[in-house]
Nucleic acid binder design. Sequence first.
DNA 1: TATATTTGCAACCAATCAGTTGCCAATAAC
DNA 2: GTTATTGGCAACTGATTGGTTGCAAATATA
Lengths: 101, 101
Amino acid sequence: MRRDVFQAIADPTRRAIITLLALQAMTPHALAEHFDSTRQAISKHIKVLTECEVVTQKQTGRENYYQLNLQKMKEIDIWLESFRKMWEDRFDQLDNLLKDL
Amino acid sequence: MRRDVFQAIADPTRRAIITLLALQAMTPHALAEHFDSTRQAISKHIKVLTECEVVTQKQTGRENYYQLNLQKMKEIDIWLESFRKMWEDRFDQLDNLLKDL
DNA sequence: TATATTTGCAACCAATCAGTTGCCAATAAC
DNA sequence: GTTATTGGCAACTGATTGGTTGCAAATATA
């Protein structure tokens, strides 16, 4: 099974989970309340996120708090880096063109 | 069928195609030579990329040149924006901590 | 004109995905 | 001690994915 951050963010529900966990650590139960699907469905998504280390867990009693691992988000940023350079160059070119006109 | 840039970059072969097309526009045939799988498999990936507008095509005779649409790459960057702010804040906090020591 | 190259389409296949329900274990609350 | 809450596991289902082969159409090339 392929488990990387790119696969993790492919699913819109998982992206929503990531956004929620960016604000604060939450339990699967609390997370599930934000969605229409069942707690088990959400738990499966959390499992994927945990397996690719996008999310880490911290157990306290019976409650399991999950929190976002920003480092993994940074991995996407690193991949984007070379492309960002390209669109910034394009922007500069357009900028120069506009100045010349 | 869900077709967005996040699903597009989920597959490692598609990410490789994107990287190749960032360097220069290419035909499916030329692209396929960079991979082990068949031309049809690559064409299917190109179809996904086209459907979510990560790639645009330009036909010349029987050859079909595909090129990267940087704008769609930027969409990922926009989504990352809020998270980037977070890890930069964390870095600043660490920086201040180190200064204090 | 005959042959080779490039391409997209359709049919098929095994694996994976996202979701469900049911169940049981552990912890909290009463 | 009994009941409620939380959460993980397993089994199942339908849809999607990434791959294959075969084929036909269009364009180059000999």
